[in-house]
Design a binder for these strands. Structure first.
Ligand SMILES: NC(=O)c1ccc[n+]([C@@H]2O[C@H](COP(=O)([O-])OP(=O)(O)OC[C@H]3O[C@@H](n4cnc5c(N)ncnc54)[C@H](O)[C@@H]3O)[C@@H](O)[C@H]2O)c1
Ligand SMILES: NC(=O)c1ccc[n+]([C@@H]2O[C@H](COP(=O)([O-])OP(=O)(O)OC[C@H]3O[C@@H](n4cnc5c(N)ncnc54)[C@H](O)[C@@H]3O)[C@@H](O)[C@H]2O)c1
Lengths: 225, 225
DNA sequence: CCGACTTTGTGCATCGGTTCACAAAGGGAT
DNA sequence: ATCCCTTTGTGAACCGATGCACAAAGTCGG
């Protein structure tokens, strides 16, 4: 038995990283349905991408397929999970337990992929001390202590926009380097910190742009002027 | 007075469209603070992008700046808003009024940008009939009627994954061509329909990938092998 | 009215990502 | 053991996006 190909390149393209979770989701579904082996073509359809792209993406992790056959589902799940760092558990803290923070805290979909909501933090005395999704809401004054105590490495920011930068600065100061930001502000962080943002309002605006094009289309009269 | 430059090109790059809302947000902040004029450099910093990129983006809309001075804040707000189709009101329906749907319904940030939550729809008899954020939750059986009656043109999907494709098919069948999907599934739609997806789990997985790299870093021992 | 200064708008080189298309690899049938 | 069929892995062309760097345009002080 020859040695299986090593993870070939430590530099995986960002676009590929963003798609790996998609493949993983599709593969999990297949594993559940008892599918043992899958071709790049079938997996690509399930994940909603082009099959050449899928193969190139996977080739960045190593050579895990068998020509003429396809990919072993279980094995590929493992390889992608390992690459994404999902073989370990990640402790996540949610700061800002309002409408959105609550929804996130109650969401079961995170746990299933190796993420554990380990702490909820808020500034409002009305909210602090409440139990949400089995967790005690802690006070923002204890932010640093909570993060250290619970081993939090990823922080989700769901505070109002005005508070986001300050909270961000504080978590960065205690060593957090991964932040998921829901507040509609541009966070300023050191280069070493990763911030991903989710802005629903922006998504809607992009949809509106295209919707307008479709409606107004090739030759709609202008409204004014 | 010479005629102002026309919107130069009807084909605006997708990457540019995705950034226009960012500029708009920054500009609104400036307008509120009474700033009348802004340079590409300052606006770029506020929006978190490179100033050359900003100028190129804006140049796709037309030539709205003044050399040596910058851009008129109010005027630029108007031009970007018009380009994005925010001068009109968009009626949005939220289907699936659970944890997430409720958070979205209660969120004030949409209305402020020309989006109006015009309908809430759910399948659960416990939820149907409730009033959330001043809106009556309607039954999924009436989905088509509600969409037509309220003039909904954008649908937000916040149902469980299993129900998303079916709801999607139904709204597409009544003519909706813009969908914002929160369910972790790849929706299958005709080419003419725009689907944007928000998947928090994917965002966390991307963060985890980078976090692992930082931690494991240049030379961490492998766990197995 | 002029000249120095500021800032835009864009040509161009570059880069990362996508897609095509095919040689090489492997499995299974005979 | 050989051949045929399927499917991977990837070289290379292509495409859109980025960012540099600067000429053109316009302002403002004198
Ligand atoms: N709810 C949505 O659907 C939605 C959609 C898009 C964006 N957002 C953004 O997400 C963020 C949260 O939205 P929301 O609707 O949950 O708002 P919310 O007002 O319901 O909740 C905000 C919570 O943050 C807490 N908070 C305020 N200052 C804090 C601080 N300094 N430290 C810790 N906690 C603090 C408040 O006590 C409150 O519980 C906002 O920035 C909002 O713009 C929300
Ligand atoms: N809550 C989160 O933070 C979060 C995060 C990421 C993704 N998501 C995704 O968003 C979706 C909603 O999440 P949630 O936490 O609000 O779930 P939820 O179970 O709280 O809410 C789902 C709602 O959809 C309704 N529903 C079910 N079938 C329906 C149908 N056929 N038509 C109309 N309504 C129907 C249910 O009655 C329920 O009210 C899920 O797909 C979930 O995976 C949620």
């Amino acid at each position: 038995m020859k040695s299986p190909s090593q993870p070939r390149d430590r530099g995986i393209p960002e676009a590929t990283v963003a798609r790996l979770p998609l493949y993983l989701r599709a593969l999990h579904g297949m594993a559940e349905r008892g599918i043992a082996t899958v071709s790049s073509e079938d997996l690509a359809v399930a994940a909603g991408v082009n099959s050449a792209k899928l193969r190139k993406d996977l080739s960045h992790l190593g050579s895990y397929g068998t020509r003429g056959v396809g990919y072993d589902v279980e094995y590929l799940v493992y390889q992608i999970s390992r690459e994404l760092g999902l073989t370990q558990d990640w402790a996540v803290a949610i700061v800002g337990v309002g409408n959105l923070g609550r929804a996130l805290a109650n969401y079961g979909g995170f746990v299933s992929r190796g993420f554990r909501v380990a702490a909820l933090v808020d500034a409002d005395p009305e909210v602090v001390g409440d139990t949400i999704a089995g967790l005690n809401v802690e006070h923002i004054d204890d932010l640093e202590a909570v993060i250290k105590r619970r081993g939090v490495s990823i922080v989700v920011l769901a505070t109002p926009a005005a508070a986001a930068q300050e909270v961000c600065d504080r978590v960065v100061a205690v060593g957090v380097t991964s932040i998921l930001n829901f507040a509609p502000v541009v966070l300023s962080v050191p280069e070493s910190v990763d911030v991903r943002k989710v802005d629903l309002s922006i998504e809607l605006q992009i949809l509106a742009f295209h919707e307008q094009r479709k409606a107004g289309g090739p030759l709609m009269a202008v409204d004014s002027q």
